[in-house]
């Protein structure tokens, strides 16, 4: 069972099913009976917005812009996953990464908006034991990544094949199962 953890356009579901994905997390929730997610971005930690999203039954993903908000999000159990991209790569220092590993937080990398350097850094973090998830987060057809391409892309950037498979197959599934258990 292959899970795409970020989908911005519900119309892409048939295409993703053709490629081999079987479950999806749709940004903002959708009409289709799948689990919705909400990605929040803020300098200051948005307790209210997180409460609102959590009460609506969405999975909360947070993209921190400052060190304080990253520390808060690591310790907040309502937020299931932290988004890593070009803008907040510098926040991921060793002590915080260790804390994230201990807390079992997932880190999501958006392939469509991340440079090769970010993906390479995410691979390093994954090698240290962080639960890394790679998602294409597509809003149109040309932004979709097939699982084989994802795997080979990670291999080219220096990941080992067992770990790359874990990041593409196992961790998204774990995230999805945790979310399903919450419903």
């Amino acid at each position: 069972m292959l899970v795409e953890t970020c989908l911005r356009n519900e119309a892409l579901i048939p295409i993703l099913k053709k490629i081999g994905y079987s479950s999806f997390l749709i940004e903002g929730g959708g009409a289709v009976a799948t689990i919705g997610r909400i990605t929040l971005t803020a300098e200051k930690y948005p307790h209210g917005e997180i409460d609102k999203a959590f009460s609506r039954g969405h999975l909360v993903f947070f993209r921190p812009n400052s060190r304080d908000s990253l520390i808060k999000v690591i310790n907040d159990e309502r937020v299931c996953c932290i988004v890593l991209d070009n803008t907040n790569l510098h926040l991921y220092k060793r002590p915080l990464v260790r804390l994230m590993v201990r807390k079992g937080k997932f880190v999501e990398v958006w392939l469509r908006s991340s440079s090769h350097e970010v993906v390479r850094r995410a691979i390093e973090l994954g090698n240290r034991g962080l639960k890394t998830v790679f998602s294409s987060c597509p809003s149109k057809i040309s932004e979709v990544w097939s699982p084989i391409s994802k795997l080979n892309y990670l291999l080219i950037l220096g990941a080992s094949s067992p770990l790359a498979l874990t990041w593409i197959y196992s961790f998204p599934l774990e995230l999805y199962r945790n979310a399903s258990a919450n419903y």
Binding site: I15, L111, S136, K140, I141, S142, E143, V144, W145, S146, I148, S149, K150, N152, Y153, L155, I156
Partner: peptide, 17 residues
């Protein structure tokens, strides 16, 4: 080649995957 395939976004301004 497999890794480069998702970087092909369009052909003659037609979106493809």
């Amino acid at each position: 080649v497999l890794a480069a395939l998702p970087f092909v976004k369009s052909v003659e301004d037609k979106e493809i995957l």
